[in-house]
């Protein structure tokens, strides 16, 4: 994995703590955080400029929720890999997110290991 080009990561979560937590916990040398956003609208505004390969996406956020944001991001860049990180643990939500184009689902709260495994899985697919 080290031989490949650096992946660009964007973090979308309305909680400051969660954004910093994800940024701090990811342990990949070839993963570079190119932007963080607190809701779907911010995420969309930042997306074209930051052009991330991998996005972590909260679902319950003000202004534009994660489900809608996933669909818009995938429309902009079909190859983007999206990891949903949410406390919403019901299956219909998970299916809906996957159907919109998400590639992984991680339940809050999560351990560093769970986060890194989920991101690694996404980078393999990217």
């Amino acid at each position: 994995m080290n031989a490949r080009r650096a992946f660009k990561l964007m973090i979308v979560d309305d909680s400051n703590i969660m954004r910093r937590r994800i940024e701090r916990s990811q342990q990949f040398e070839d993963l570079q955080v190119v932007g963080t956003a607190g809701n779907g609208v911010e995420a969309l505004a930042l997306f074209s400029q930051a052009d991330p390969d991998v996005v972590t996406m909260d679902l319950t956020m003000p202004q534009m929720d994660g489900i809608e944001c996933i669909g818009r991001l995938v429309a902009l860049k079909p190859a983007v890999r999206i990891l949903v990180i949410s406390a919403l643990a019901d299956k219909a939500t998970a299916v809906e997110a996957m159907e919109r184009g998400a590639n992984g689902f991680l339940n809050k709260p999560f351990t560093d290991r769970q986060l890194n495994e989920a991101i690694a899985d996404l980078m393999r697919r990217a």
Binding site: S15, S86, A87, A89, D90, N107, K108
Partner: peptide, 11 residues
């Protein structure tokens, strides 16, 4: 976030 987790579990 704590409340979020409780809510997620309940859902």
């Amino acid at each position: 976030e704590v409340a979020n987790t409780i809510s997620g579990n309940a859902r």
